[in-house]
Amino acid sequence: MEQQLQAISRRFRPLLQDGTRPLEFIGRVAAELPALFRNGMRQRDLRYYLDLCGVQALPIVVLICLLMGMVMAVNGQIQFSKLGQEIFVADAVGLIVLKELGPLMVAMVMTGWAGSAFAAEVGTMKLDEQISALETMGIRPESFLVFPKLAAMLISMPILTIFGDAAGILGGMIIGVTSMKIPPVAYWTRTLEALDITTFVLGAAKSIPFALLITFAGCYCGFNAANNSQGVGRGATKAVVCSIFLIVVADVFITVLYSFIGY
């Protein structure tokens, strides 16, 4: 009986650890927060990641959101033209972009852009014994490596989302003006009427939890990558898949939460 129990526990312990170890990881990082506030973080690292996650990611984010806005407008035109109410494309595109598509597309792009890079970087550092070197210097690798990335993501994701929102609406407007022949002023006025600041803020606010998820998934998968080059590659893949999954799950929760307050 005892042996069977042990066998069962052996079989399920790894599963359980898969659940608890990420939490442990987050805890280890969070435990260093007081030290972070006392000592600050390395400005050079922060600037590097701001550049990587913010400045360099901006063009691709804007381009993708612009195209998605256009695609939605074209689809909207097909539907609304049946009713002869093409101007409502402005409402549809504006609302969908601000509420869902903007934050979500930015998160997806940043997962591929930054999340995988974080995992590969940390995984290589582990492979290279750089993590051991940090540890024997008495520096906690978790916080030393996570904080600059996290700060940069928390700063740049909301800003990228604002740009993404704007690009999406602009994309819709381009289709509205060219294909639907709606005067730009009319399209713009209609958009402003359909949207309000709360919708925008609640949508953009999603980028904060998304940034947390992308950074933690990336770093965690890097830290737990197997110690070989294939392990680093798999770690990067895992980071992307995990963070996309987590983002979608988080989005579901947030949407339910927002629905309680009427949005």
Partner: peptide
């Protein structure tokens, strides 16, 4: 960590932090 700070370790491949210059590595 306090004990670790008392000694220095040199790793097989150097284990330099690849995002920092040599001087920044030593300065860390």
């Amino acid at each position: 960590r306090e004990i670790m700070r008392r000694f220095g370790v040199t790793y097989q491949g150097g284990a330099l932090f690849s995002s920092m210059s040599v001087a920044e590595n030593v300065a860390l």
